[in-house]
């Protein structure tokens, strides 16, 4: 559910929503959600001074009811 919520939040604020890919990684310390976006959109999801990235993390953690790590990645980067 939380990955879907993040996907919805990100898709609404980028110019290339069809290129948004979320992958969830569970590890001992919690969950990390990796968000891949089109290179042109990376600035949008990070925002000025990281403001948008912070907002995404805050909302996702609130909905999940626990701290969730959100990593924002340009789709071009090697995995």
């Amino acid at each position: 559910m939380i990955d879907e919520a993040l996907e919805h939040l990100v898709k609404g604020i980028v110019d290339n929503p069809e290129e948004v890919v979320i992958s969830e990684k569970d590890h001992r310390r919690g969950t990390t959600l990796e968000v891949r976006v089109h290179p042109e959109d990376i600035g949008k999801v990070i925002g000025r001074n990281g403001r948008t990235a912070k907002a995404l993390r805050t909302v996702v953690s609130a909905i999940a009811g626990r701290s969730v790590r959100v990593d924002l990645i340009e789709a071009d980067e090697a995995r």
């Binding site: 609404g12 604020i13 110019d15 948008t52 907002a55 995404l56 805050t58 909302v59 609130a62």
Partner: peptide
Amino acid sequence: EVLDSIQELTRLAVQTA
């Protein structure tokens, strides 16, 4: 804090649209 973040993202969604 969460409300402000949701508001911020919603503003961006409007701007994108």
